[in-house]
């Protein structure tokens, strides 16, 4: 790649990761996947349309394809890799598996983070709020039914664990 280059450090999932001599125009999505070996955020549209590259930048859900990597210095980046692994799934990840909300899986990491973002801010969202919260995450397999079911399951489990109903199954 010719053109202006830049070296910097990114704070990803609590780790300081150096990026050496990257082309200035590289998106955070590209740097995460191709330079830092973190393929959780998926690359599909590269224009902020599909949400499959959703990540948190300073606790704000954004599309990594619309973030210039060299501008993400001194920001706290969280990817789906930071939310759990095969042995320690987050409650949202477990609910997606349990309800069968995953088919091809391409949209799943972005949806997982969008659902975490919603339920961490609004513990008891209405159906419309759920639909709006995932409106930027395109899924072409599931028809969304089981994704919505997974959200309901996490909602119920979380309110059962801490809410007035007080009893979890």
């Amino acid at each position: 790649m010719t053109g202006a280059t830049e070296s910097y450090e990114l704070d990803v999932d609590g780790r300081a990761l150096p990026v050496a001599a990257a082309w200035l125009g590289e998106s955070l999505l590209y740097v995460l996947r191709e330079r830092l070996g973190l393929p959780g955020a998926k690359n599909a549209c590269e224009q902020g349309e599909c949400g499959s590259c959703s990540i948190f930048l300073d606790d704000v859900l954004v599309n990594a394809c619309c973030v210039l990597a060299a501008d993400a210095t001194d920001a706290r980046i969280r990817t789906v890799e930071g939310f759990g692994d095969a042995d320690h799934l987050s409650d949202v990840q477990a609910a997606f598996l349990g309800t069968g909300a995953v088919q091809c899986g391409f949209c799943t990491p972005g949806l997982i983070l969008a659902v975490h973002d919603l339920l961490d801010q609004v513990p008891d969202p209405t159906g419309l709020e759920v639909r709006e919260a995932i409106s930027g995450n395109l899924c072409r397999c599931t028809g969304y039914g089981r994704i919505l079911q997974a959200v309901e399951e996490v909602k119920a489990t979380r309110s059962g664990a801490s809410g007035p109903r007080g009893e979890s199954p």
């Binding site: 053109g3 202006a4 125009g25 224009q47 210039l68």
Partner: peptide, 14 residues
């Protein structure tokens, strides 16, 4: 950044 992704713009200085 979308313009850059789609190769419609190659920034020299941001």
């Amino acid at each position: 950044v979308v313009e850059v992704n789609l190769d419609r713009r190659r920034p020299e200085h941001v």
